[in-house]
Amino acid sequence: MPDTFARDRIVAAQAILASIFASQKALRALAPEHSWAGLGNLLGDFGELLATDHYKLNKAPSGSGDYDARTADGRSVQIKTNFASSQIGFRGEADLLLVLGIKLDGSWEEIYFGPYLPVKQLARFSGRDNKHMIAVSKLRSLAAAITPSAATL
């Protein structure tokens, strides 16, 4: 029989998970075009919601492969959402990359929104994960280096 601490911890974790699952159900009702499924997809769906609502991007159809949205002028955009990782992983090709950082209170910041190719050129390839990886700090530096005319999207 588990001790009181372990039992209380399990009960607390169950309550938190129940809250997350209830929130996912509410999010599905609010924005049914996103799956809001699984804990891993929750962050990604939130990033895509920000991209469509804040950046006015058009969500790509399911199964679009390398990209998640399109700009009004038709450019493809891969969207990455980060909470705590120091690295961003990505695969495939797109015209633009949008990387959003989510904070503990659910607020967010734009880490990078610009051309995809320079990011891919700076990234390292991880054969183990079969994807490119780039440090968030490198993305911030690249974003700062983009001239206003190049960053016009």
Rank of each mutant, 00 (worst) to 15 (best):
M1A: 12
M1R: 11
D3L: 05
D3F: 04
T4H: 03
F5T: 02
F5P: 01
F5Q: 06
F5R: 07
R7K: 09
I10H: 07
A15E: 13
S19H: 12
I20N: 13
I20C: 12
F21A: 10
A22S: 15
S23H: 05
K25V: 08
A29W: 01
A29S: 03
L30C: 11
A31C: 03
A31Y: 01
A31R: 07
A31H: 03
P32S: 09
H34A: 00
W36T: 09
A37C: 12
G38S: 12
L39Y: 12
L39P: 04
G40R: 04
N41Q: 12
N41M: 08
L43G: 04
G44W: 00
D45K: 04
E48D: 11
E48C: 09
A51S: 13
L57S: 02
N58P: 01
N58A: 14
K59P: 00
A60P: 03
S62L: 08
S62Q: 11
S64Y: 00
D66P: 10
D68G: 08
A69F: 07
A72P: 06
D73P: 02
G74V: 07
G74W: 11
R75H: 01
R75M: 01
R75A: 01
S76G: 02
S76W: 01
Q78H: 07
I79V: 15
I79S: 07
K80E: 06
K80G: 14
N82F: 00
N82T: 09
S85E: 03
S86L: 07
I88K: 01
G89H: 04
R91Q: 07
E93P: 00
L96V: 05
L97H: 01
L98M: 11
I102V: 15
L104M: 04
D105Q: 15
G106I: 12
G106L: 11
E110C: 12
E110M: 12
I111Q: 01
Y112T: 10
F113I: 08
P115I: 00
Y116Q: 09
L117W: 07
V119A: 11
R124F: 09
F125G: 09
S126V: 05
G127F: 02
D129H: 12
K131P: 06
K131A: 15
K131W: 00
H132S: 14
I134H: 04
A135H: 14
L139P: 09
S141C: 10
L142D: 06
A144Y: 12
A144I: 11
I146C: 04
T147N: 06
P148R: 08
L153Q: 02
